[in-house]
Simulated scan of single mutants.
Amino acid sequence: MGSLSALPNVGSVLEGLLVQAGITTPEELRAVGAKEAFVRVKLIDPTACIRMLYGIQGAVDGVKDVSLSESTKQELKAFFRSL
């Protein structure tokens, strides 16, 4: 078990939103996955944007959001638009 803020891209704001969404550990975040975690966050914060989705995916993958592949970003964009 560890702190969500130890993951890449997770600052205090995102950590707080994830905790409010019922995700309190990196293990829980990985188990839930970025898309489901983002949906939960978006229910709490309707202003959550695509950059936050990228950040969550990066946290799940253990990389900075700028390091996500173009194919991953395209998949996430399509998902975001479908919401």
Rank of each mutant, 00 (worst) to 15 (best):
Asp65Arg: 15
Ser69Glu: 12
Leu53Cys: 06
Thr24Gln: 09
Lys73Leu: 13
Ser71Pro: 00
Thr24Glu: 11
Ser67Thr: 07
Ala78Asn: 14
Leu68Asp: 05
Ser3Tyr: 12
Ala31Trp: 01
Ala78Asp: 14
Met1Asn: 01
Tyr54Lys: 06
Asp45Gly: 01
Ala78Lys: 14
Gly2Phe: 11
Val32Met: 06
Glu36Leu: 01
Gly58Glu: 01
Lys64Gly: 08
Arg51Trp: 12
Ala78His: 12
Asp61Ser: 15
Arg81Gln: 15
Val10Phe: 01
Leu83Tyr: 05
Lys42Ser: 04
Glu27Arg: 06
Leu76Asn: 00
Cys49His: 10
Phe80Thr: 08
Arg51Thr: 14
Met52Arg: 02
Ala34Asn: 08
Val13Lys: 05
Lys35Trp: 02
Ala31Arg: 13
Ser3Ala: 13
Leu4Ser: 10
Asp61Ile: 03
Ala78Thr: 12
Arg30Glu: 09
Ala31His: 11
Met52Pro: 02
Gly58Tyr: 03
Thr25Pro: 09
Val10Cys: 11
Leu18Cys: 04
Ser82Val: 04
Met1Trp: 12
Arg51Glu: 11
Leu76Val: 08
Leu17Arg: 06
Leu7Met: 10
Ala31Glu: 11
Ile23Glu: 03
Ser69Ala: 13
Ala31Ile: 00
Ile56Gln: 02
Leu29Tyr: 03
Leu7Ser: 08
Glu75Lys: 13
Ile50Gly: 02
Lys42Met: 03
Leu68Met: 04
Leu43Ser: 14
Phe79Leu: 09
Ala34Gln: 00
Asp65Thr: 08
Leu29Thr: 05
Leu76Pro: 05
Gln20Met: 11
Ser3Thr: 13
Glu70Leu: 13
